[in-house]
Design a protein around this nucleic acid. Structure first.
Length: 799
RNA sequence: GGGCAAGUGGUGGAAUGGCAUACACGACAGACUUAAAAUCUGUUGGCAGCAAUGUCGUGAGGGUUCAACUCCCUCCUUGCCCACCA
């Protein structure tokens, strides 16, 4: 009787898989392909439970597909540029490249200890010049087509660190590193014109039938298409016109004032010379300061400009205000205020004593007549009142009619506004892809030519943590020749945001060593799109949106022949401890490596799959992991008591288990797949198993507990790798029951059960049910009102 | 404020119109053992009952149905995402 010595077994098989290149993928046109991808990690040096869960889910799916005969591509790499390497450089005086290489090495060792089925021959790291070369190449193509461009804009700026911050790096209005209040600063920055693709990004969401609903909803929200009307308000005694955007044109007759954002370009002109000028200027100055801190609380402050404009639908003269509840970034930066039908306008109007007029009522005879009776704005649907020729129309209908009428008369224009902004990719940082552009005093902004790529990061730079980009201080990097006139020029010292790196890595995996372009077209044609993508919900918007954008751009370049990169998407839930997310700051981290040491990788994999379905949160439970370990040991010991020929009932259970496990793995229902295998093991402990039953069980376990299965597969005298064996097929005859249990209900309550032949007809079943003595005692001779018979399941007698 | 998801035994969870609580953890009991651990075998939703059995029970309330954890409506709670977005 041997022990289940997981340490030896796991090392042995990991070495075997490596030496035999078991998981090496090659494109082969005669086999169905399956590209399984998990979101690649930032190489922090240690894997955490989130990684373990993400990659275990993917690994089981990959191994299952291999056994089913698919040609599987399952690669792994590292999203290796980014802030932490630079922070480490500042803190420990290490070089970012050396620090990152060390982290990758350590992380790879941990991933290997989990026994994941990666084709390590395809490993890539985004910080390799052979990778970021093509980042730069794609950027140049975007520049050529006007998709990459430079403009001046407000960005988050930490005055202490002297650097810009991404929105994600602003925590409660302060710098995530030093907590200094973040300011808004005007800077020239590089952008990618993702807005050029907004229509397609929105529309093609419809193609993503196998994406979670909520991810689709989040992307829709983020793109933020809203249809409305731009209305022109003429300023009284002036040639100026104020365009206003609204999605509620049906409320236009209730507009009692107009509001501009304090930064609106027309504001200065409007207030000049009015009695309100000083007050207005002071207000603008004050809000500008308040708005500098990124997360200012909403307020309802504002000031009258001293000017009036004309409501074009009823020629009413209404005042123009400036208020900080209007945002310059959305719409036209100006709104028409309808206090009766917009809650924000209502609050502002109440505060400042502005008039209100109801223009939509639930019904025409509704008794509320004067606006003073309103406690809040009515934002729902109803019938138009006080609305000129549109009175009496349902407001949804009026919305369309008024829009059309405005177009015809030139009062306004039907328009669509979007929330999506262009993507700011400039970072004043060292550890990222250099933006391949040169500034020449004579020729201006000149792209580096494709032949001269990659623009390499200098090996060293001064990392002080203050005073802007370290790259700017590396003379050999900055000083260069203009590609156009050969005169002296300066290189761009900004680098690209790391989200750029991860926006196309799934394409690079198809031909990671290709040198003539970002990827080999035929390899991409064979492998793409990704059949199954797996990762955290935190990437539901940014990474997935950027990857979709890149795919569409590369399609337009003629390099791809599909619109969407990821066919199916699974977002796995988080791993919790004591009801909270595992995090360093909470100090509730469970180190996967410690669990591997104590129980082995197969036990860890089994537990993490068994404890919860993949999409829901998973509560870490040390006792649960012992249960998983006990189960593997229980399976291990079956080998000591194999019979010559197992009981037919065991075979029946076996084939039912094959069916259930196959269906469940297909649907990523790992927890119930494992439960059904546990049931089979319980039956085996009752009735015994033979070699064939045992071998089949081992194969069913193989995708989940790979090392364990290999060892037993070999011990049973098989040659070759279990994970290359054919996936078991169930016998339909053995799965079908010849006797079924029928539930007999009286008035919907279970009163009896009958064992009957599976092919009994409904009439016989009904007769049998009525004849049952327990049933008779409930029916008590009264004739049943009706009897419902569900074949093979139940009979319900209604009395 | 808007959107989405979830709410089931002591615990993780199963059942997506047809036996509520599969499987596991924990707990309790028995076997083995000098003893413990490990292992194996049972029992394990509440209430009433010696028992057979009855009855209640899936966040709350209503509805549809012969039948509802499941579908519909209203509400509560929790989590996530977005948010002065006009």
């Amino acid at each position: 009787m041997s022990m289940y010595s997981f340490k030896e077994i796991e090392t042995k098989w990991q070495e075997y898989w490596r030496a035999e290149e078991v998981f090496k993928a090659d494109s082969s046109p005669d086999k169905p392909k399956y590209y399984l991808l998990e979101m690649f990690p930032y190489p922090s040096g240690k894997i955490h439970m989130g990684h373990v869960r993400n990659y275990t889910i993917g690994d089981v799916a990959a191994r299952f597909k291999i056994m089913q005969g698919y040609n599987v591509l399952h690669p792994m790499g590292f999203d290796a540029f980014g802030q932490p390497a630079e922070n480490a450089a500042i803190k420990n005086r290490t070089k970012p490249d050396i620090w990152t290489a060390k982290c990758i090495e350590e992380m790879k060792q941990e991933l290997k200890k989990m026994g994941f089925s990666y084709d390590w021959g395809r490993e890539l790291a985004t910080c390799d010049s052979s990778y970021y070369h093509w980042n730069q190449w794609i950027f140049l193509k975007m520049l050529e087509r006007g998709i990459a461009y430079k403009k001046s804009s407000l960005v988050n700026w930490c005055p202490a660190c002297q650097t810009t911050l991404a929105n994600e790096e602003v925590v409660e209005g302060g710098c995530w590193r030093c907590h200094t209040t973040v300011e808004q600063k005007e800077l020239e920055q590089w952008y990618l014109k993702i807005t050029e693709y907004k229509e397609r990004l929105l529309e093609d969401l419809g193609q993503l039938k196998n994406w979670p609903e909520r991810v689709i909803a989040m992307q829709k929200n983020w793109i933020g298409k809203s249809q409305g009307v731009e209305i022109y308000f003429k300023v009284k005694d002036s040639l100026v016109t104020i365009p206003v955007f609204t999605t509620r044109v049906d409320t236009i007759f209730g507009a009692t004032y107009v509001v501009l954002a304090p930064e609106h370009p027309l504001v200065k002109e409007l207030i000049s010379g009015t009695s309100q000028q000083q007050e207005a200027l002071a207000f603008i100055e004050k809000t500008a300061r308040a708005r500098k801190s990124a997360q200012a609380e909403p307020t309802k402050e504002g000031v009258f400009t001293g000017r009036y404009c004309i409501n074009p639908v009823n020629k009413e003269t209404i005042p123009i205000w400036i208020a900080d509840y209007v945002l310059m970034e959305y719409g036209t930066g100006a709104i028409m205020a309808v206090p009766t039908h917009d809650q924000r306008d209502f609050l502002f109007a109440s505060e400042h004593g502005m008039p209100m007029r109801i223009v939509i009522r639930v019904s025409e005879c509704q008794s509320v007549r004067v606006s003073e009776e309103l406690a809040e704005a009515y934002e729902g649907d109803g019938v138009q009142v006080n609305s000129g020729q549109f009175n009496g129309l349902p407001n949804q209908e009026a919305k369309i009619k008024i829009g059309e009428w405005m177009e015809k008369t030139g009062i306004g224009k039907i328009q669509t506004h979007w929330r999506l902004r262009d993507w700011l990719i400039s970072r004043q940082r060292y550890w990222g892809t250099p933006i391949p552009v040169v500034y020449c005093p004579d020729c201006g902004v000149v792209p580096v030519s494709c032949q001269d790529l990659p623009v390499r990061l200098p090996a060293d730079a001064p990392f002080t943590g203050e005073g802007g980009s370290p790259l700017g201080k590396v003379k050999e990097f900055v000083e260069t020749q203009c590609p156009k006139c050969q005169g002296p020029a300066r290189r761009e010292t900004d680098t690209m945001a790391t989200f750029v790196d991860s926006s196309w890595y799934f394409l690079r995996f198809c031909s990671p060593r290709y040198t003539d372009g970002p990827f080999a077209k035929d390899e991409v044609k064979y492998w793409m799109p990704v059949d199954q993508y797996i990762g955290g919900i935190e990437h539901a918007i940014l990474h997935l949106l950027y990857s979709r954008f890149y795919t569409k751009f590369l399609k337009d370049l003629g390099l791809l022949n599909f619109d969407e990169p990821f066919n199916k998407l699974l977002t796995q839930g988080m791993v919790l401890k004591d009801g909270e997310v595992m995090s360093k700051s909470k100090g509730n981290i469970v180190d996967p490596d410690a669990i591997i040491q104590k129980y082995g990788a197969d036990t860890l994999r089994l537990f993490i799959l068994f404890a919860a379905p993949p999409e829901t949160e998973l509560e870490w439970d040390e006792r649960g992991i012992e249960g998983a370990f006990k189960f593997l040991n229980r399976v291990w010991r079956i080998r000591d008591n194999l019979q010559d020929k197992a009981d037919p009932a065991v075979y029946k259970k076996l084939h039912k288990t094959i069916k259930k496990v196959t269906e469940d793995l297909e649907a990523f229902k790992f927890n119930t797949a494992i439960a059904s295998m546990m049931e089979l093991v319980n039956v085996i402990y009752q009735s015994g198993a033979d070699k064939q039953v045992y071998e089949t069980l081992i194969l069913l376990l193989c995708p989940i507990a790979g090392h364990f299965a290999e060892e037993l597969w070999q011990a049973l005298g098989n040659s070759g790798s279990a994970c290359k064996a054919r996936w078991p097929i169930f016998d339909p005859d053995l799965v079908a029951d010849e006797v079924v249990t029928i539930v007999i209900q009286v008035n919907g309550k279970v009163r009896a059960k009958l064992e009957v032949s599976a092919d009994i007809n409904d009439a016989d079943l009904k007769a049998l049910a009525l004849a049952d003595e327990k049933v008779a005692s409930w029916v008590k001779g009264s004739p049943p009102k009706s009897v419902i018979v569900v074949p093979r399941k139940l009979v319900n007698i209604v009395i």
